[in-house]
Each structure stands twice: as C-alpha cells, then as structure tokens.
C-alpha cells in the first residue's frame, strides 16, 4: 500500500547538537513517511529523541540550541530544511501545527482563549474582525466545548486541564493544517480526560482528513488510535507496524521488552514483570553494531559488529534487526 505522495517524508534525517566543541547526534538517520489523513504514532521512552525529532520538523530547535541538520524533511514535496524564514512562516501554524504536553505552559496566561485563537487567524488569513470572531466560536464548538462564547472570553487559568488542551487544539486547528504534531498531548491529563481528548483527535482526523503525528510513551494509546506507529530507540526508529500489531505482536526485541514490562489488564497479577536489562546507553557512546545489542536477550556476535539494516517483514511491518526472533531466523 505504498503511495508515492507522502504528506511528510523524512529521508535519512539527522539532528546534531553542538555544545562545548562537541557534536552529539540525537536523531541518527530516521526515514519515515506520513500519508495524508493518517495518524502515525511515534513511541519511545524519555531520551530516545522523539521530541527533538518532532520539534525539528518545524525547525523550532534552532532558537534554543546550537543544532545542525542532515538529510531531508519533505513536506508536500518541499524541503523544510532549505526554507528561508518567510517560507517557514507560511508553513508553521498554517500547514503544520503543533500541540504540546502541558497546555498551561503553552498558553499565554494574560490573553483570553478567544484572543489567542484570533492571533493565528490574523497572521495567516485575510478574514475581517467579524469573520474571525465567528471562526473562533466555530472552532471552539468543533472542540465540543459546550459554551464557546463564554470560554472564548476566559483566561487559561479559569479552565480545567482538559479544557485547556481543547483550547490548544483549537489554536492549532485555526488554519486547518494538513498535519498536526501532537507531542504527548494527554500525558498531563487524567485518564478519563485523556480518553475524551483522544476521541476528539480521532474525530478531527476523520472529519477534517488531517494527518496527525502522535508522539507518546504509551503503547496503549497507540493500540487504540494510531493507524501506524514507529518505535524509537536511541535516536533511531527500530520498528514500524500498524498500531494494533505493535501492541499485540511486537517483533523487535526492544518493543517486545517494552510491551512485556507494562502491567496488563488481562494477565497474571502480583508476578514479576519482565524487565529490559541494563540502561539506555549514552548518546555519545560509539556503538559499533545494533544500538540495542547490549541490552538484547537475543543478541549474537553479529549484532555487536554490524548495524542491522531495515528489513520489511510483511503487511506494512519493518524492523531494524538482524533476526526475526519469533521465527528464529536470520533476515539476511
């Protein structure tokens, strides 16, 4: 099912940080595609580079750190890495929008919700003041906020966490972006609120045909809402699969370990959970072979010497591993 017209395509994408005359590579050659209208999950533990990668998709990092990029980020055929500031402004907030983990930090505390949505419309559209006002109410309604007029006049601190995140999404959707980058949008929320926000995101994806890059550490959320997902470990993607399969039938040893270490709702209770041995190596460490080899229970000599290529293992699935563990065979 590979379409050539990916909405966003990363080609051997790398992000380097420069600090005190040292270069640290945080994203180490990622290839991925997001199709129009698709929800792609990006899963990984803290420090795996998922947030760095998502922020660099809009080139937000260069304001706070000394970074350099390699490779390509093709959005609708145009390379974001080679855009000048004017071109970037047209893309940011207009064609690609982003929501973050903590809505209270991302919202401006001294402006009303209505004001903050309007600001985006002022920047990117030619709507009149009156049209903007009605668009604000329309957007808040789309977020399933029951009293849009009242909420638009409220300040962020007057809203609950769930309502704040809805307001963030309304700001992000103001210009009907083609791609929404959602960086752990529900991590700061309670489970019941999380379920509502996830339902809302799925509805918006379906109704507006907007693609979503959904960044999370929660395999359960991937199972529930992502069409496809990529697992990241140490700045690389190690497995790619449909969301449900990733949770039920993980193939890469790292994903297997991750899935097994989560207490389940159906399995045995009060028993020892399988644990991934060792710790995540430092990004600066020079690993000759597979990044996961040191912690992998199945690792062979080959794993320490050769970096595994990406193997396709049928129906939209691929792993960066020398072996298909379940079949007990080498993939080469």
């Amino acid at each position: 099912m590979e379409q050539p017209t990916a909405l966003l395509e990363l080609k051997d994408f790398k992000v380097h940080f420069h600090a005190s005359h040292e270069k640290t590579t945080v994203v180490k050659g990622v290839n991925l595609k997001i199709q129009p209208g698709e929800i792609l999950g990006l899963v990984g533990e803290s420090g795996c580079g998922k947030s760095v990668m998502s922020q660099s998709l809009m080139r937000l990092l260069e304001y706070s750190a000394d970074v350099s990029y390699e490779g390509n980020i093709l959005f609708d055929g145009q390379d974001i890495l080679r855009m000048n500031p004017q071109e970037l402004r047209k893309v940011r907030g207009n064609e690609i929008a982003m929501i973050f983990q903590d809505p209270m930090v991302s919202l401006n505390p001294v402006f009303t919700i209505g004001n903050q949505i309007e600001e985006v419309l002022k920047e990117h559209t030619r709507l009149s003041k009156k049209e903007r006002k009605s668009r604000v109410l329309e957007l808040l309604g789309l977020m399933e906020i029951s009293e849009p007029a009242r909420v638009s006049k409220q300040y962020p601190h007057e809203l609950s966490g769930g309502m704040q995140q809805r307001a963030m999404i309304a700001i992000a959707l103001a210009c009907e972006p083609k791609l929404l980058i959602a960086d752990e949008p529900t991590t700061a929320l309670d489970v019941t609120t999380q379920a509502q926000i996830m339902k809302l995101l799925q509805k918006l994806n379906l109704e507006l045909g907007m693609a979503i890059l959904f960044i999370t550490h929660d395999l359960g959320l991937v199972y529930e809402s992502c069409h496809r997902a990529e697992v990241m470990y140490l700045g690389q993607t190690v497995e790619s699969a449909p969301g449900r399969d990733l949770f039920e039938l993980p193939k890469h040893p790292y994903t297997k370990g991750l899935a097994a270490s989560i207490p389940s709702l159906t399995g045995a209770r009060k028993e020892k959970l399988p644990v991934i041995p060792g710790i995540v190596p430092s990004l600066k460490e020079n690993l000759g072979g597979c990044a996961f080899a040191k912690r992998c229970p199945y690792a062979t000599e080959k794993c320490f010497q050769q970096i595994p290529p990406v193997f396709s293992i049928g129906e939209g699935r691929a792993i960066k591993c020398h072996y298909d563990i379940d079949q007990g065979v080498s993939l080469l």
């Binding site: 489970v191 999380q194 379920a195 199972y223 949770f247 709702l265 159906t266």
Partner: peptide, 22 residues
C-alpha cells in the same frame, strides 16, 4: 473490582484505560 465494577464512576474510569481491555 475489575470483573464486576458497579459504581458508574469506576466503570467510566475502567473504560478510559487505553489499550486492550478485558
């Protein structure tokens, strides 16, 4: 509690857990 939740709040809470549910 997991096989026979009774209070509506508990039921809502259990239904909200992401992932595969019993």
């Amino acid at each position: 509690l997991f096989s026979n939740p009774i209070h509506p709040y508990t039921r809502n809470l259990l239904a909200s857990i992401p992932g595969k549910k019993p």
